[in-house]
């Protein structure tokens, strides 16, 4: 995949209303029992933007990300796409609303969650063929094209367990791309990988960002966030403590909690 290639059916090709963000979340709250995990999160994501979520373990990053794909349903707060009507989580959330959210976004999981009984190709075309009703031949052609772009063309008939961790995760990314979602969600996509495999996945993600895909990425890879993200949100205790451009947030964080967190990650032995 080279940066000068035209994007394959990527979201920037569709004409958009530049004024409204792709996604606006307001006041998201979520508790698991007594554990208040999200305490009023606001988030805007514009088309073509890469937003990185960072923060200590248990701060609610995964829960926030999963809420955007209806894998968790917040207790209250709203979510709206393209300036459209807001989904109000204080009201019962219908199955059709979940479906609509999942239509918008696609998740790349920490542990890839590929379907082990399906080949690489079958993993990728499952959504397009079964859900989007794309003709099989067309879905296969597109899947092969996407697999070639991440260097996995010759693995199309392999089963997931025959791949390395980095290859599995790249298939996970292709499975998400094949749905042509408006929004790609990544939950620490490299944290389960051996260190020498991290680069191959991050470089694919960087190329996607350069192609104009809209991405929300939970990550501990600060160098990646710094190089690729347009905006970084630092979460702690279920709130956004600080947000800003990476150059600003990483070099001169305004909040003391952000400073301490960055210090711990950058100088773990101090």
């Amino acid at each position: 995949m080279s940066h000068t290639d035209p994007p394959v059916d990527s979201p920037v090709e569709t004409p958009v209303d530049d004024a409204a963000p792709l996604l606006v979340a307001r006041g998201l709250h979520k508790a698991f029992g007594d554990n208040q995990v999200l305490r009023g999160i606001d988030l805007e994501v514009y088309r073509g933007q890469v937003v990185a979520l960072i923060g200590p373990s248990g701060s609610g990053k995964t829960t926030l990300l999963r809420s955007l794909d209806a894998l968790e349903i917040p207790d209250s707060g709203t979510l709206a796409f393209d300036g459209g009507p807001a989904i109000d989580f204080a009201l019962p959330v219908r199955q059709s609303t979940r479906a609509a959210l999942r239509d918008r976004s696609a998740m790349v999981f920490q542990h890839h969650n590929l379907f082990p009984h399906r080949t690489v190709l079958e993993n990728v075309i499952e959504g397009p063929v079964q859900v989007r009703r794309v003709p099989r031949a067309q879905a296969v052609a597109r899947a092969e094209e996407l697999l070639a772009r991440v260097g996995l063309a010759e693995k199309r008939d392999a089963y997931p367990h025959e791949l390395s961790g980095g290859q599995q995760q790249r298939v996970g990314i292709v499975r998400a791309l094949a749905l042509s979602p408006d929004l790609l969600l990544f939950d620490e996509p490299t944290s389960a990988l051996d260190p020498e495999l991290v680069g191959e996945v991050l470089s694919v993600m960087k190329e996607l960002a350069d192609e104009g895909w809209t991405m929300v990425v939970v990550t501990h890879e600060l160098a990646f966030a710094r190089a690729v993200a347009d905006e970084v949100l630092f979460l702690d205790g279920g709130v956004v403590v600080e947000r800003g451009a990476p150059a600003q947030l990483f070099t001169e964080p305004a909040e003391e909690r952000t400073q301490r967190f960055l210090h711990r990650i950058l100088h773990p032995l101090d």
């Binding site: 999942r102 696609a106 999981f109 542990h111 079964q130 859900v131």
Partner: peptide
């Protein structure tokens, strides 16, 4: 995670 992977690709 297998359920969730099914849901995220849009399956009921």
């Amino acid at each position: 995670g297998q359920w969730e992977a099914g849901w995220t690709v849009g399956m009921s």
